[in-house]
């Protein structure tokens, strides 16, 4: 047994430990794309909220801050503004998931790591728990008219999901999660600027993080 065998042994130990417990095929590019979709969504949402006559078929929201609870919830939840915002939100989510799936599948193939294996399942379960909890909570709160909590709650639950997920993929994702949580707290502290914080957290941060990951791991 010579020197090179020792080093090969160590490299294979390290490789197996990482690949068996972490899903390292997440694509950095998909982060960048998700960020771009989020920014487009935020611009559309902004227009829906602040120039409603142009974009919501003449519907005018009640006077005052559109983030705060107004009127009874039946009136609110079925208002064209809210429906349009929900439509934009789900559009962004769907586009981001689809792109993420396609790019990650491509990278997994290149790495020879199973797209639907032990590690990706663990990662998905870890993320789904806080995300579904947050998702249902937010939808119920919207239906009660608590629109001001949407942005901070989205950021907070997403941040927690990322911090949890860092055990099952690149550890760097933890820092993205912590940034999202800090933004969530700021968004809660400054009501009325929710959309701005949301756009920064889901748009700008994703683009920055995605670019860093792309440079670090995808090449």
């Amino acid at each position: 047994m010579e020197d090179s065998k020792l080093h090969e042994d160590l490299a294979s130990i390290r490789n197996m430990m990482e690949r068996s417990s972490k899903f390292i095929s997440l694509s950095g590019l998909s982060g960048i794309m998700a960020g771009i979709y989020a920014l487009i969504g935020a611009v559309l949402a902004y227009k829906t909220l602040y120039e409603p006559s142009k974009y919501t078929f003449g519907y005018e929201p009640q006077a005052g801050n559109p983030y705060l609870q107004t009127g009874v919830w039946e009136e609110l939840i079925f208002s064209p503004t809210i429906l349009q915002l929900l439509f934009i939100a789900f559009g962004v989510l769907f586009a981001a998931l689809l792109t993420g799936y396609a790019l990650t599948a491509r990278k997994a193939k290149k790495h020879g790591q199973a797209l639907w294996g032990k590690t990706s399942k663990a990662l998905l379960f870890q993320m789904a728990t806080p995300l579904l909890t947050g998702g249902f909570l937010i939808i119920i709160l919207i239906s009660r008219g608590y629109l001001g909590v949407v942005s901070p709650a989205c950021l907070a639950f997403y941040g927690l999901a990322l911090v949890g997920a860092s055990a099952y993929t690149f550890t760097d994702i933890r820092y993205l999660g912590i940034c999202e949580i800090i933004l969530a707290i700021l968004a809660a502290a400054f009501p009325g600027y929710g959309l701005l914080f949301w756009a920064f957290g889901f748009g700008v941060l994703h683009i920055v993080y995605g670019s860093l990951m792309h440079l670090k791991y995808d090449r």
Binding site: I13, R14, M16, M17, S20, A114, K118
Partner: peptide
């Protein structure tokens, strides 16, 4: 390699090991 995998995972099944 098998031992490396089992050191960092509580347990691993045959098919997943084979794929890995």
């Amino acid at each position: 390699q098998i031992m490396s995998v089992l050191m960092v995972n509580e347990s691993y099944d045959f098919t997943s090991l084979k794929d890995l």
